[in-house]
C-alpha cells in the first residue's frame, strides 16, 4: 500500500499537468500572448480554488470525524455569502461597497472565521449525532442563503441578478482583483496544514484518543477550523459557492491512493481537484460548447455521490 502511493501521486501529477496543458493550449487563436495571459489568470484561480476546496474538505472531515461532511454541506460557503451581504447592509452607508476589494475580502474573511468558530465549536463539543449535525448544517445553509437573498432584495429591490447570480458558481467570471491575495492565503494555509499532517492523522482517531496521545484537542481543532473557514472564503470569493466538489474530489483521491494518511491524501486530493476542475473546464470549454456548465455538472455528480455515501454509511451502522 505504501508502495502504491508514490506511483498514484505521480500519475495524478501527470494527469494534472496534462489538464493544465490542455487548458492553456487548446484552440488557441488570435493574439496568443494576450490569450495566454487571460487563460493563465483563470488557470491560477482554478488551481487556487481546487487546492483550497480539497484541503479544507480533508481537514474538516478529519476534525469532525466524518467522511460525508464538507465545509459547504455544513453551510460555510453560505455563511461567507451572508457575511458579504450583511456587511454591505450594515455598513452600506459608510461607503463600504466602494472600499478596496482586498480590504473588504480581509474583513469578510476575518468576520466569517469568527462566526464559523462560534457556530461549529459548540456543535463539535456537543458530539451531536452525525445525521443531526448534517441536517442542521444543511438547514443552516438554507437559512443563511435565504437571509442573504432577503438582505440583497432589501438593499436593492430591483437587482434580481443578486439573488440568482450568487446561487451558482461560475468559472468564467473569476475575480481577478482578488487573485493575488487569494493565492497567498491558499499557499499559507497549505503550508500550515502540511506541517500539521501528522497531527491530523492523530485527530482522525477522535477526540478521546487524540487527547490521550497528548494533542490539545480544543486548541488544535479551533485553529484548524479557522483555517478551513479562511480556505472556504478563498474559493467562494473567487468563483462562488460549490457544495459537493470537495466531497467528490476527496472521495476520488481516497479511492486512488487508498489511504487516509494525510501526507499522501492532501497532495492527492489537491491534484485530483486540479484534474477535475482544470480538465473539466478545458473539456467543456473547448470540447462541449457549454462552458458555464462545469459547476453544475460537478455539483450534480457530487450530489449523487453524497447520496450514495449517505446510503452506504447508514447501512454500515
Amino acid at each position: 500500500m505504501i508502495g502504491r502511493a508514490p506511483l498514484a501521486l505521480a500519475a495524478l501529477a501527470a494527469l494534472a499537468l496534462l489538464a493544465t496543458a490542455a487548458f492553456l493550449a487548446l484552440n488557441l487563436r488570435g493574439d496568443i500572448g494576450f490569450a495566454l495571459e487571460l487563460r493563465g489568470a483563470r488557470l491560477l484561480a482554478l488551481v487556487c480554488v481546487g487546492v483550497s476546496i480539497a484541503t479544507s474538505t480533508i481537514v474538516f472531515q478529519t476534525v469532525t470525524g466524518n467522511r460525508i461532511l464538507t465545509p459547504s454541506v455544513m453551510g460555510l460557503d453560505a455563511l461567507y455569502g451572508f457575511v458579504q451581504i450583511g456587511l454591505v447592509f450594515a455598513l452600506g452607508g459608510l461607503g463600504f461597497a466602494t472600499l478596496d476589494p482586498r480590504m473588504k475580502f480581509a474583513g469578510e474573511t476575518a468576520l466569517m472565521t469568527a462566526m464559523a468558530l462560534a457556530l461549529f465549536l459548540p456543535m463539535l463539543r456537543a458530539r451531536l449525532d452525525m445525521t443531526l449535525m448534517l441536517l442542521s448544517g444543511v438547514v443552516l445553509g438554507v437559512l443563511l442563503r435565504s437571509l442573504s437573498s432577503l438582505l440583497a432584495r432589501v438593499i436593492d429591490p430591483n437587482d434580481f441578478a443578486i439573488a440568482s447570480g450568487a446561487s451558482f458558481a461560475s468559472f468564467n467570471a473569476v475575480r481577478g482583483d482578488l487573485l493575488a491575495v487569494a493565492s497567498l492565503m491558499t499557499i499559507a494555509a497549505c503550508v500550515v496544514v502540511w506541517r500539521a499532517r501528522h497531527v491530523l492523522d492523530v485527530l482522525a482517531l477522535g477526540q478521546d484518543a487524540s487527547t490521550a496521545l497528548g494533542v490539545d484537542w480544543r486548541r488544535t481543532v479551533a485553529g484548524l477550523l479557522a483555517l478551513v473557514a479562511a480556505l472556504v472564503a478563498v474559493s467562494t470569493a473567487l468563483v462562488g459557492p460549490m457544495v459537493f466538489v470537495g466531497l467528490l474530489v476527496v472521495a476520488l483521491a481516497e479511492r486512488v491512493v487508498n489511504t487516509r494518511r494525510h501526507a499522501v491524501l492532501l497532495p492527492a486530493a489537491a491534484l485530483t481537484a486540479i484534474v477535475v476542475l482544470v480538465g473539466g473546464q478545458a473539456t467543456l470549454q473547448h470540447g462541449l460548447g457549454g462552458a458555464s456548465a462545469l459547476a453544475i455538472v460537478v455539483e450534480f455528480a457530487g450530489g449523487l455521490l453524497f447520496l450514495a455515501l449517505l446510503f452506504a454509511e447508514s447501512r454500515r451502522r
Binding site: 449525532d129 445525521t131 443531526l132 448534517l134 441536517l135 444543511v138 438547514v139 438554507v142 451558482f168 457544495v243 456548465a293 453544475i296 455538472v297 455539483e299 450534480f300 450530489g303 449523487l304 453524497f306 447520496l307 449517505l310 446510503f311 447508514s314
Partner: peptide, 20 residues
C-alpha cells in the same frame, strides 16, 4: 434525521439537474 437529510440533498440534485 437521515430521511430529511436525504430528501434535502435529493431535492437539490433534482433541482440542479432541472436548472441545467
Amino acid at each position: 434525521f437521515l430521511v430529511p437529510l436525504f430528501g434535502l440533498i435529493y431535492g437539490a440534485v433534482l433541482g440542479s439537474a432541472a436548472m441545467f
